[in-house]
Amino acid sequence: MEFVNSSSPRYECLLFDLDDTLYPLSSGLSDACANNIIEFMIEKLGIDEDGVVELNQILYKKYGTSMAGLKAVGYEFDNDVYHSFVHGRLPYENLKPDPVLRNLLLSLPFRKLVFSNGDEVHVMKALKRLDIEDCFEKIISFETLNPKINDSCDADYLPEIPVICKPTEIAFEKAFEIAQLNPDTTLFFDDSVRNIQTGKAVGLHTVLVGKSEKVEGSDYALKSIHNMKEAFPELWSESDNNKESERIAYTTQISIETSVEA
């Protein structure tokens, strides 16, 4: 005899953006990152200082990230050099261990993944500073979505899309494939309205983080990621129900085995 739980959980996976989602905008990392991008454009690409801020805004809005925009309009540079310049000088010391978030994440037995446009070094540095790097099953980063071309490939080969990143649908679809997740049972947390709207369009349940009010495309809004338990008590209820089901199943199995042995 086998115990079967007839009530399936609504969610099976929690998918988290990193920057300004798992840590607050007030950390100052986003402002520092924006300044570093501007410096990179001026110092490394020779873009005129007078129009660089406006150009950066245009590229970001059109292509999702400044890096994707620069590549799309023809600028050539090494990805690792860019990430080292832009992320390598961020004030990571502003990020402190977050025991509240850590406890929230560890108390949920669902699959938990990070989905970031940032490079892997940046993602891991931030997660380690927050002391939550071991709370996630997998990290989907810039390198995950944009693997390096094999040396054996044609040197003249250029991908149709120079950089795959949120908020493009292809980035989400690739993430789903890589992580083998079902968007219908996945709760997606992100601070970007554009990312949330694309997430909703591809079937995710969406949570806008850092805002008190929902926008088009968001199913929920959280002022802080720390408000998860107040906003989604059912996640913890499902967790308790699953544990109870496991307990009943185990007890039933022991009971049956005991009676057989007797």
Rank of each mutant, 00 (worst) to 15 (best):
I42K: 04
G28T: 07
D19N: 07
D20H: 03
L25D: 09
I37L: 12
G51H: 13
L45W: 03
N56F: 12
I37Q: 08
D50E: 15
I37P: 05
F40Q: 06
E54P: 10
E49L: 11
F16K: 01
L55N: 11
Y23S: 03
I58E: 15
I37G: 12
D48Y: 06
D20E: 09
G51S: 12
T21G: 01
E54W: 09
D50G: 11
L18D: 02
Y23Q: 04
N35K: 14
D20F: 05
F40V: 03
G46S: 03
D17E: 00
L22A: 03
L29I: 13
D50H: 12
C33I: 12
C33N: 11
M41H: 03
F40K: 09
L55E: 14
N35Q: 15
S27G: 06
L25F: 10
S26D: 05
D20L: 08
E54M: 15
E54F: 13
M41K: 06
G28H: 11
G51K: 12
E39N: 15
Y23F: 05
K44E: 05
E39C: 10
G28A: 12
L55D: 11
D19E: 04
I58V: 15
F16N: 09
L18S: 01
G51D: 07
L55S: 14
A32W: 09
L29C: 12
E39D: 14
D31T: 15
L55P: 10
E49A: 13
E43P: 02
A34I: 11
F16T: 04
I58M: 14
S27R: 11
G28I: 11
E39Y: 11
D19G: 05
K44S: 07
I42Y: 02
D48F: 10
I38Q: 12
G46E: 01
L22K: 05
A34E: 14
E43D: 15
Q57K: 15
G28S: 13
I42C: 02
T21H: 01
S26C: 05
L22Q: 05
S30M: 15
I42L: 03
S30C: 12
I42E: 01
E39A: 14
E49C: 11
N36V: 01
E54H: 13
G46W: 08
